[in-house]
Design a protein around this nucleic acid. Structure first.
Lengths: 238, 238
DNA sequence: TGATGTATTCCTGTATACAAGAATACACAA
DNA sequence: TTGTGTATTCTTGTATACAGGAATACATCA
């Protein structure tokens, strides 16, 4: 047996289909393409100078994420989010996040807790800097949030749970950058994350479950406020 | 406004891609194509006399179901199910099915309970007939099982929960016809369903939650037995 | 014999042409 | 004006050709 390197894989070059998918996904999440808007294969082809085959593939991936839906007249339409749907998802997400927290509380290891602490402090630094009047990088804060929750989810040691949570989070994830605009919400979010890490360290399972449920509820409330204020969901709510 | 008909939709003709998907899906579930087996686009094209485009689409749909996975050397491979994965899924499924039961218990309506009763009696009749030595239609029994759980899930009034449960059930669904071969397991299954309907009628939420968890566990145990006895999962467990 | 460089084969990703079905616009008749 | 039949346009589904990258087989050299 030869030496061999550590476990990371070579990265296969991105296909055009993947590039188209990620581009459209980004634009939808950033609301450059708005809920209700219709997307046609040919239109996308021409604007990106690619053929229909990879665009078709990208459409299917977006559909899988629930970001778009096929419409009978042809093409796809960017999905919206009604308050009823948000409520449905929140209920479900609470169940799953609490379950993940419970499992993570049993299984998480020291180095993972340290990682979480680092993430929280980075986020805290970002938020604190914003309080001193500087511009805040909402994308970076959003990313840290994602990494935080992913790390906990990974500690639950269930790839299926991770997969399902990805699906359930997606519709809400779209609105997170907007919810993070609110200063109070940002502060509370970071503070709650800090407390969650403390609970994981103390293996305070009941406290963690309770706080997780509250945390999910808070995010939902913030998103609901966005949905109500913008008319981004007019007519688009299926 | 004109008269208008009742709410059912016209069925759009099946595309070739859908036909290929359903055919392959059926063969995988029926183990005609076994876990670990490799499938190539061209090979499927030639055997079915269709072009590569619909086959590609079908492959993607199968991948979405988790029935196959892409392999680096090209093509797809039918996925297996390791005991560890079964355990993971069972834990997750229990959480979700219990949640669905809890919601259904609050929201289910009389006519839905009556539907459930009919389904249970049809299943009971099938099982009873088998006890008299007749051949049993396992596919029909399996279908009734699916309808039973779908009806409860529908009563939970959450399309997202339904979607997620579909995903979580899929890997196990593949082995249900095998688990139903066992006579004792069939009898117990029908009896439990009957008790579940009774609990829904009495709105006995705690009892229902408890029984649901047990029911999921029983199915898992049965599938585990199948996995252990056949070597169908040799090497295929990722 | 074993390692290395080269040719070949395999398989997918992509572009593109064609066909068919649905939706729309429009003309014509009552 | 209103309803109906027809033509046109849109849009997708499908087949197919081509290109490129990876894996394999093979030949050559130490």
């Amino acid at each position: 047996m030869t030496a061999g390197l550590s476990g990371d894989r070579v990265k296969t070059p991105q296909t055009i289909a993947e590039q188209v998918y990620e581009l459209l996904r980004k634009r939808i999440i950033e609301q450059q393409i708005k809920p209700g808007e219709r997307l046609l294969e040919v239109a996308v082809c021409e604007s990106l100078n690619v053929s229909r085959t990879p665009v078709r593939e990208a459409f299917r991936l977006l559909q899988q994420d629930g970001l778009v839906e096929r419409i009978p007249q042809g093409g796809i339409r960017v999905t919206g989010l009604s308050l009823e749907e948000l409520k449905e998802i929140t209920t479900l997400r609470t169940v799953l996040e609490v379950h993940a927290a419970e499992m993570a509380c049993d299984l998480i290891e020291e180095h993972e807790i340290e990682t979480l602490e680092q993430i929280v402090e980075q986020a805290a630094a970002l938020v604190a800097a914003a309080n001193e009047g500087k511009d805040i990088d909402l994308d970076e804060l959003s990313r840290l949030n994602t990494v935080f929750h992913d790390t906990i989810c990974a500690a639950a040691r269930s790839s299926y749970l991770a997969k399902i949570l990805d699906i359930v989070r997606m519709p809400i994830l779209r609105f997170r950058p907007f919810s993070l605009v609110d200063r109070e919400h940002r502060l509370r979010g970071v503070e709650e994350h800090r407390r969650m890490v403390g609970m994981l360290r103390r293996r305070d399972k009941e406290g963690l479950k309770h706080l997780t449920a509250k945390h999910v509820g808070d995010v939902s409330t913030a998103v609901a406020r966005i949905l109500s204020s913008t008319q981004a969901n007019r007519g688009a709510a299926v």
